[in-house]
């Protein structure tokens, strides 16, 4: 009856699941009303929190601890090998390429995306077309990484360089128009990683622009006016008025994009599958865990990801606290 075999069955299943969930919530809310007396509030709170705490304990805390434990075991997960997997990550040639690529991603993406977003936010600020202009750059945020990867794969598309064959990818066509030879962009080591990074920059610049644009608009008008009366030019205005004022927002944007970049998986998997030396940690985690059946190495890569996120988050929180204290 309610099986995932037909479309109607799937929707029926979904409705049944929602009703079941609603019943559970109803029961929780009802049980909470049964308590009376001095400690009633306390019980109510625990009952309200129970489903959440159980789900987080089983679905986040336990798996996290389990993965850390697993990262000290071999591929099959049956022999303890200490830090062996971590040693592999930092010595194996293939894994070193993965680390190299991840560093390139995390260094380039946040700064370029933020710079473009900031520049664009300043350029379109208070112009007639501001909302339309911003919507155009923000729209890629709505598109899935898979969709964005297909959009850009098409830009990079390559057709054999023969007399009667025309290029269908925009990039190669531009190269041809400029008198060059078309390239198999995604197969060229080093360059391909940069071309994949372009996709994430394309997605994240809209985020940077939106946050920074709001920060720019929050700068008090009288400060700008005073600087202008002092004869400060556009560059001086940016350097001494805008940038110091939006610094906290810039830090948040940089760290947020950096965290997102560390976990980038969809783009690499869809566009190259991690081949041609384009793999990054998050993609390598997936390949090792599910394709190569190397549970231990996969777990170690996941843990490494976790470890790399922590300092960025700590820095972010510190900066937020500092700007709140001001």
């Amino acid at each position: 009856m309610l099986t995932a075999d037909t479309n109607a069955g799937k929707i029926g299943l979904m409705i049944a699941a929602i009703l079941l969930f609603a019943a559970v919530v109803g029961i929780i809310l009802f049980i909470a009303t049964l308590f009376r007396g001095r400690l009633a509030d306390r019980f109510t709170a625990y009952i309200y929190l129970a489903p959440t705490l159980i789900m987080l304990a089983v679905g986040l805390v336990y798996p996290g601890v389990r993965t850390i434990y697993q990262s000290f075991f071999n591929a099959a997960g049956d022999a303890f090998i200490g830090l062996g997997n971590y040693e592999t990550i930092f010595t194996d040639n293939e894994q070193l390429t993965v680390l190299r690529n991840t560093v390139i991603w995390v260094v380039l993406t946040p700064f370029v995306a933020t710079a473009i977003g900031m520049l664009y936010a300043i350029l379109v600020d208070k112009t007639k077309f501001e909302s339309l202009a911003k919507a155009l750059v923000f729209l890629p945020m709505a598109i899935s990484f898979v969709g964005a990867s297909i959009i850009w794969s098409f830009v990079y598309a390559y057709r054999p360089d023969q007399a009667n064959v025309k290029q269908i990818g925009l990039l190669n066509q531009v190269v041809v128009w400029l008198g060059g030879t078309p390239q198999q962009w995604l197969l060229t080591d080093w360059l391909n990683t940069f071309l994949l990074i372009v996709v994430l920059i394309w997605i994240q610049a809209g985020f940077a622009m939106t946050v920074l644009s709001a920060a720019i608009k929050a700068i008090p008008e009288d400060i700008i006016e005073a600087a202008r009366l002092d004869g400060v030019g556009p560059w001086g205005m940016f350097r001494f008025v805008t940038l110091p004022a939006i610094r906290p927002a810039v830090v948040v944007v940089l760290t947020t994009i950096a965290i997102g970049t560390l976990k980038v998986f969809d783009i690499v998997r869809t566009m190259t599958g991690g081949q041609f030396n384009t793999s990054v940690i998050a993609n390598e985690f997936y390949s090792q865990s599910f394709r190569s059946d190397n549970q231990g190495l996969g777990a170690a890569l996941a843990v490494l990801l976790f470890i790399l996120v922590i300092p960025i988050v700590v820095y972010n929180i510190r900066q937020l606290k500092r700007s709140e204290a001001l």
Partner: peptide, 17 residues
């Protein structure tokens, strides 16, 4: 604790889950 759990990357949880 719940606030801190926000930063756990999904990758860490997938296989045991």
């Amino acid at each position: 604790v719940i606030f801190a759990l926000q930063i756990v990357p999904l990758q860490v949880t997938l296989i045991p889950l």
